[in-house]
Nucleic acid binder design. Structure first.
Lengths: 143, 143
DNA sequence: CCAGAAATTGAGAGCATGAATCATTATCAG
DNA sequence: CTGATAATGATTCATGCTCTCAATTTCTGG
């Protein structure tokens, strides 16, 4: 649980820095969020509604966005849905995906990340996140 | 324009094979689609409405999906928007996406592609395709 | 501790994208 | 030509998320 306390501290610092307030709802959402690897806002809403039927959907959306701003969560779009990933559960990584057997290998490559920054700068962009997926055949499926 | 005729043939074959019919609307949408590298359904709708104010948005959505099924187009999700890419224009490119205004800049970077190959080889993979999207703020939205 | 300014909340309306409905119209095989 | 069947387009519906606003909560500083 010292982990959770650490994250609560990060949130508190973010709130203070931006003149925001720590509320019961924000604390609840953070606590629930930290227990999982990822959630959708809708799912989070249903979970919280069990304990506190008066929680508002808008608050869930707002708070999840807040957690992203505080660096504790990260948004990911999958088709129509948006997932919020718990950053603590995994550092950022990219994926190698086998189109045959579905195997997924995670990797990280600083050189690629550096080049991405370069491309962005050249186009006047400031990168916040990225997604890199390589699709192909793994060693087993190729033979 | 022999190129366009070729694509029209592909569409006709697909229609025949699935007992579908060739309509004026489908032909118009294909013709317009072939002129561009990518469109959203909404954008396509506005283009077509200039010539034929009675075109239905539903028809545009249905036909773009049809083009995907015929292998002439490919869907891509960017946040809330869905883009349809012209497969024939297929110089592969990656995307810089502004999370604020939705602006999309395409780029190509051989060095990144080479590093991707390297990562794949190291993991025993043979890459067929990839997807690289950089999310951030464009120059205008940052200021 | 308390007052009051300021942020936050929740309920519901609003909005955008895209899919489903259905009466009318167009296509095309025979 | 003609009839079966597919397609169209106007509209409604569904989803996912944001906005609005009155009421409530937080928290600063006196």
């Amino acid at each position: 649980m010292s982990k959770a306390i650490q994250e609560l501290t990060i949130l508190k610092e973010h709130l203070t820095k931006h003149n925001l307030k720590l509320t019961r709802q924000r604390e609840n959402i953070l606590t629930t969020f930290l227990k999982m690897e990822h959630v959708t806002a809708e799912h989070m809403y249903r979970l919280l509604a069990k304990k506190d039927p008066h929680i508002g959907l808008a608050t869930v959306y707002r708070t999840l966005k807040l957690l992203c701003e505080a660096g504790l969560a990260k948004e990911h779009h999958f088709g129509t849905q948006t997932q919020f990933d718990n950053v603590a559960h995994k550092g950022h990584h990219d994926h190698l995906i086998c189109t045959d057997c579905g195997k997924i290998v995670e990797f990280e490559n600083c050189q690629i990340e550096r080049l991405q920054e370069e491309v962005a700068t050249r186009n006047g962009f400031t990168i916040k996140t990225h997604r890199l997926e390589l699709y192909g055949l793994c060693a087993t499926c190729r033979s």
